[in-house]
Design a protein around this nucleic acid. Sequence first.
RNA 1: GUGAGUGUAGCUCAAUUGGUUAGAGCACCGGACUGUGGCUCCGGUGGUUGAGGGUUCAAGUCCCUUCACUCACCCCA
Length: 424
Amino acid sequence: MRGMHDRLPEEMRRLEKVILIIKNVFKKYGFEQIETPALEYWEFLSGKDRYGEEEKLIYRFKDRGGREVGLRYDFTVPLARVMATYTDITLPFKRFQIQQVWRGDSPQYGRFREFYQCDADIVGSNSMIAEAECISINYEIFSLLGFKEFKIRINNRKILQSLCNYCQIEPDIQLQVFRAMDKVERIGIDGVAEKLELHNVPVEKRKKLIDILQDCKQISDLKKVLKNEPGVTEIIEIFRLLSYLNVPQKDYCFDIWMARGLDYYTGPIFETAVKKPKIGSLASGGRFDKLVEAFKPGHIMPATGISIGLERVLVAMKELDLCPTPDTYVKVLVAIFDPSHIEQTMQIAYKIRNCGIQTEVYAQPDKINTQFKYADKRKIPFVIIVGPDEVKNKCFTIKNMATGKQQAKKMSDLIIWAKSILDK
RNA sequence: GUGAGUGUAGCUCAAUUGGUUAGAGCACCGGACUGUGGCUCCGGUGGUUGAGGGUUCAAGUCCCUUCACUCACCCCA
């Protein structure tokens, strides 16, 4: 399938390793895991304050009962649905979700139609503590994964809205303006101006806006234009909290141009990117205070969160060589020396497996040479052999594949030996 | 979804203006080494040239269709 791929053991091991790191950080911050179905009713996925124009990228079809359904496009909308449905959930609710999402996009480097995302969101909190926690998680994950040069850019939709209002840009085209701004790195300031022109923003308005944006290198620069702007106070608060959480200043920054394209953001927004490889953002997120309400009118429920693009992270890590493939988890290969000693051989496997050691019995009576080659190729650290000599002497032979050394041990020492390699 | 490029062995790549039976390295399999992997040496298997159709005496090479990948646009993780 276009934009989708099979994942063989080697890549699965890599994926599993990365997921484990991410999961542990989520848990470290007290988040609980949930899952939601791959399919959602179309009416939940579409409409105002959801994905905006991206709606056309949602896989949509009729189920056998003729109902309009769609594959989930992200976890934020399903989360809002969950919050609107289960009203007895204790707030603030901190949940994480690691599953696949589907987007009918044209596939490119680091861009797929089916991919894993890892989301962590906090529902029910208006406080910037929630933002700070999410950004801190974001920071911890990227540094634990081994990224050296990444930047978490932070902005606020409230600021952008206020700026648009200040420049008298109508609300109904503001999202288009945001999307144009977001592209500044690629198309330059003139490019942004052209886009604004395309969306019928008059010369004087777009000039005014771009001038402000250009002048605004840091958050304090905004105070001249926007007085008592809540969005500015929020960002300052987030920065203060981040310093308490010891998130290094070099890894995050305020960026007035970073705007995000999704419709549902209402407050602080963030995006994580690396310089190399050229792959777009690896993680993103923001506040979506009105989304739950969209499912249940009157049910006011502020929320904020981050989303990590696992698939893209894996591509980037591969490119930067941050992700050596872990060796197989199998610790011991029990070789089949010859079928007449199968009883002793299988019993050994049984016993060491019961010690909690991942043990593979070679699956057919091939030549011993072949079996050693197999162990070598799969990087299984130990091979156990039980042949005529061993049976005669009531012992078993262990070969350490890394050192090449082997020794015979008494059968009665099997469990002791097994336990000795448990921690290795 | 629109436009452009690429597609040759499991992988990385060769193959003259269209011209014999499509090659090499690595990988794989076998042997040297019949109770032992890596290293070395020797030998071997491996291809509907992405797929389908067309032009031609002759197609990996030219044309059309389709699929996959890459790039740009759109947009995003």
